[in-house]
């Protein structure tokens, strides 16, 4: 990770009381949406999908942290619409991109199985941040799940 990106990231998480050293060992962070606008003591709200995604990444041996691993006290939310809220996915190591893309694709692919004919497609809501020495990018996405999958697959090829 570049020094500048590292400083920005640690600054943002530091406002929430996260020890910057604790972040260093992780390739990917799965955090509540809009985490960068929050301050210590704010109501942080994880989606159950964000937590599930972090578990799937860990299963594939990605060094991934969720709010619990960083010592953040969060609430949980469950929205009963078909939309998928994966929160903020912060990729700190470009080497993890292919695995993140593969797992996200599988996770979302399972979710978007149309429940019945005629139903509209679900949408995905995500913040994707990549901050390492190769690339620094931020994508806030609220839209069609298949379009999101194309975007993240594009990241793998960069």
């Amino acid at each position: 990770m570049s020094i500048q990106a590292d400083a920005i990231e640690c600054g943002l998480l530091g406002k929430l009381g996260v020890d910057s050293d604790a972040v260093q060992k992780y390739q990917v962070l799965c955090l509540p949406q809009a985490v960068e606008y929050l301050r210590e003591g704010s109501d942080l709200v994880d989606s159950t999908e964000s937590i599930t995604l972090s578990k799937l990444l860990k299963q594939e041996n990605i060094a991934c942290a969720n709010s619990y691993d960083l010592g953040l006290d969060t609430k949980l939310t469950e929205l009963r619409g078909l939309d998928i809220y994966v929160g903020c996915i912060w990729i700190r190591d470009h080497a993890a991109v292919p695995a993140v893309v593969a797992i996200l694709s599988r996770f979302l692919g399972d979710k978007i199985q149309e429940w019945r004919k005629g139903s509209k497609k679900s949408q995905v809501h995500a913040e994707l941040k990549i901050t390492d020495e190769k690339i620094s990018a931020e994508i806030e996405f609220n839209g069609d799940t298949e379009a999101f999958l194309k975007v993240i697959k594009g990241l793998k090829d960069e």
Partner: peptide
């Protein structure tokens, strides 16, 4: 109708610990 539900935390139905902390996948 689609309710949004917020809860103070969650427990894993398999191991009964903080839902965020264990490796069991919903």
């Amino acid at each position: 109708v689609s309710p949004g539900i917020e809860f103070e935390g969650g427990l894993c139905s398999i191991c009964n610990v903080d839902f965020r902390a264990c490796s069991h996948v919903p």
